Amino acid sequence: MAEGDEVATRDIRVRLDGTATESDIGALRKWLEREKPLDELVRAGRLRIHERPSADESGAPMGVGMEIVVAVVSGAASVVIRDLLDQVKGAVEAWRTNRREVEDGEPPEGRVDPVNPDDR
């Protein structure tokens, strides 16, 4: 991430690979909402976590066609995107570890990326 990216990037996108189910998407969103640092930011009104339709670079739906967006609410300038990105990545890995323990099969791979403002 370049030096000025913290200002330009206000959202983080979480995508699961094509093996993900709608249940996986919902469970991961709920997991993210309960993660302590993220939960505190949501409760303070500085962060929103929601699902939205997803498309790969060619425009074709990806997996179940949904992605999770962790959006910094306008005016929450004190939220540092780089730290938030690390927290979200750690939460996705913790969710994958938990899912591996409670369900059969390998959990879907997750990808966590800052959203380019031009991609909105």
Rank of each mutant, 00 (worst) to 15 (best):
A71T: 14
V73C: 13
G26E: 06
K30F: 01
D39E: 15
H50F: 12
P53W: 05
V73E: 10
R52G: 01
G45E: 00
A60P: 00
D56A: 14
S58A: 11
A71L: 09
E67C: 08
M62H: 11
A44E: 01
L32G: 03
V42L: 06
K30S: 11
L47T: 05
D39P: 04
G75L: 12
V64I: 10
P61I: 09
D39V: 10
G45L: 08
D24E: 08
K30A: 10
S78I: 13
D56C: 13
S78C: 04
S58T: 14
G26A: 13
V42P: 04
R48W: 06
E22M: 13
E33W: 03
E51G: 06
P61N: 07
D24V: 13
S23Q: 07
E33K: 02
D39N: 12
A76K: 01
V64Y: 03
G59Y: 02
A76I: 10
R52D: 07
A77D: 15
S54K: 00
M66H: 12
E22H: 13
V72S: 10
V79W: 01
S58R: 11
D56T: 09
H50W: 07
R48H: 15
R29A: 01
I25S: 00
R48N: 09
R48E: 11
E35L: 10
H50R: 12
A77P: 10
A71H: 13
M62K: 09
V70Y: 05
G45T: 04
V72H: 04
E57T: 10
P61T: 13
A71K: 15
A71I: 09
D56M: 13
P37K: 01
V80P: 14
V69Q: 06
G45Q: 06
E40C: 06
A76E: 03
R29C: 01
G63A: 06
L28V: 08
L41H: 07
G65K: 00
A44G: 03
S78P: 08
S23E: 10
V72W: 03
P37L: 02
S78M: 07
A27R: 07
